[in-house]
Amino acid sequence: MSVTIEVRNIVKKFGDFTALDNVSLKVGDGELLALLGPSGSGKTTLLRIIAGLDWPEAGEVTIDGEDALGRGASERHVGFVFQHYALFRHMTVFENVAFGLRVQPRAIRKDEQAIRARVKELLDLVQLDWLSDRYPSQLSGGQRQRIALARALAIEPRILLLDEPFGALDAKVRKELRQWLRSLHQEIHVTSIFVTHDQEEALEVANRVVVMDKGRIEQIGTPGEVYDNPATAFVHGFIGESIVLPVDVSDGAVRLGGKPLNIAANGAAPGASKLFVRRHDMQIGPAGGGSLEGAVRRVRSFGPIQRAEVALADSEGKTVIEIDAPRDRELQAGEIISLEPRRYRIFAA
């Protein structure tokens, strides 16, 4: 099965608000793609447009090379898992999963025995066959989520779309379901897109991540790419924890509060800019040994790292940054240390 999704120049407005601003995207066969962004970034709207639950003002959507906008949601053969599951509350789990099979046109509808077999197969797949006689209100959040997925898979969808699949679950269940979804995807290999605002979820589950903000795509890449080589200031700030310092770039030198830093501008345009450094990418040295200097204010140690709040000396202690350092060099509150960015990015402010 080879199903690709292509979205070209999609524009969607709600009144004066532009939810999607000229968005284009290609999803390859068998991918598990994450749409990642803060709320209001347009990610759910894009998902609903692909499913046929919303219509764009302009643009094209093709699924498997066929124009999708010419068809309604019921004809697109798309599996959609809703954020709050939207299970049919008056039907048992079994009937929920069977729904998509029972509403098929008579000509292609399976007989009762085949429907039962298929539902059983799906409930086995999501490991919940023992719940088939229950009603949705009798299930836990994680169970509802898996039933919603089984229901969507019943129609053998060409693609699978999931809206905040783990959003309404508690942290522990969420972790378990993530891994479960990942292995399920490997098993059934359906081209899938899921929406999330949780970067950890996107980086851990997806094989490609689309970072969105204010109706635009900021970056598309593998989890490694978006984390290590963020394309924009927004992506750097949104994915992973970052230290952000206001700097000035001129003549290839980078200055913080007038004082030059020992780092190259790396071709950044001259003018007011922002220096982005990951918390763990600050090299710690003895006082007087680096570009930046500061006093350790507080240290918390957990696991393999210690997290320190450092008040930078140049800002007269007004700028406080948080850094992560390995435990091999214990930091003390009150200690003066120097800091040197090991890896960093500079974006125009």
């Binding site: 499913a51 046929g52 639950l53 309604g72 949601a73 019921s74 004809e75 697109r76 053969h77 798309v78 599996g79 959609f80 809703f82 709050h84 939207a86 299970l87 049919f88 509350r89 729904f99 998509g100 509403v103 098929q104 229901r151 969507a152 019943a154 129609i155």
Partner: peptide, 20 residues
């Protein structure tokens, strides 16, 4: 939401009304 779910599962308008 339940109506949208029914439609995405391939139900027609009438099926959605009478079944959901």
């Amino acid at each position: 939401q339940e109506e949208e779910a029914a439609i995405s599962l391939g139900a027609s308008g009438l099926q959605t009304f009478f079944r959901v």
